[in-house]
Computed example of a mutant assay.
Amino acid sequence: MRHQGDANLNHYTLPLLNWPRRIGLAADVYLCNTMMEVYARNGRVPLARRLFEEMPLRDVVTWTSLLSSYVSAGDSPEAFHLFCQMRAEGLEVNQVTMAVLLRACYGSEDKVAGCQLQAFANKAGLQSHELLQNSILSMFSRLACFEEVMKFVIIQNRSIASWNILLSSYSFIGDVSRVVKCYRKMRLEVTPSNETLTLPISAFAKCEHLPGGREVHCNAIKT
């Protein structure tokens, strides 16, 4: 059953789909990219795809927006197909594109594709980007590939987000000793946020590790 909101959305979006062409702005990549983002955020992937096909000019943002639309819709195979098309057309992917594809990997529980993307990112010189590092780390954590997580601990310039992912991973498998080591090492590099502090506290509570909880509580008071 179609909701009234769907009818209202189509009432406005269908005429808008032809609007750039009618007013001579079909070649305005920024405008079309923005419209694609609107369609994607409203779950209108076919409309985003139709606009994409009609655009005479596309950039990496255009392709990434459409990739993200399919990933959000749970259609990982089509997202990877578009990625292959994108590369075939000679476009250089960026860290945002790779982060979107990595999200598709843990959404479809595809470790092999994730490892291949990591290798591709490394070859393309993208792995030094913080966004991509955290996306790879998050993917391995969500796929419970803790060997890869351990290897990835050597990344440089770790941010709060990186430490949060690591703490969550160790907490998930109930490895209290690693939670303690990770927390202590993190405090030498960065100042923990309120969100970060809740991760070890939750882990210690779950494992009934009172000394660890007291340590975090004490540090929270001091800071």
Rank of each mutant, 00 (worst) to 15 (best):
F52V: 08
F140E: 00
D28A: 05
P15T: 06
S72G: 09
Q4K: 15
V96T: 12
S162M: 05
A203C: 05
H81N: 13
A203M: 07
G212P: 09
G213V: 10
V61F: 06
M86C: 03
A161Y: 12
W19P: 07
F83G: 04
A203Y: 06
S169D: 01
Y12M: 09
A48E: 04
D175N: 08
L210W: 15
V45L: 11
V60Y: 15
R214M: 14
P46Q: 10
P200A: 02
I173C: 08
Y183T: 08
I160T: 03
A48P: 03
S159F: 06
V179Q: 00
P77V: 13
L67G: 04
F204W: 05
S128H: 15
F52I: 06
G5T: 13
Y70P: 01
R214D: 11
L91G: 06
L166Y: 01
V100C: 04
I23T: 13
A205E: 08
N8A: 13
P56T: 06
S159T: 08
W19M: 13
V179H: 01
M36Q: 04
M186T: 00
A121W: 01
A88S: 15
N164R: 08
W63V: 04
N194I: 06
S202G: 06
K222C: 14
G213E: 08
L67P: 01
L137I: 02
I221Y: 11
G212Y: 05
P46R: 09
T196V: 08
C115T: 14
V71T: 09
S65E: 00
P200W: 02
L210C: 09
K185H: 14
C105R: 00
N33I: 01
F152D: 01
C182V: 05
F204T: 02
E109N: 13
A121L: 04
M1E: 14
Q133F: 10
F140D: 00
R103W: 03
R178E: 12
F140Y: 12
P46K: 12
F52Y: 12
G74L: 09
Y106K: 00
V153F: 12
V100S: 05
L31V: 00
G74D: 09
D59K: 11
K123T: 11
L210G: 11
A40M: 15
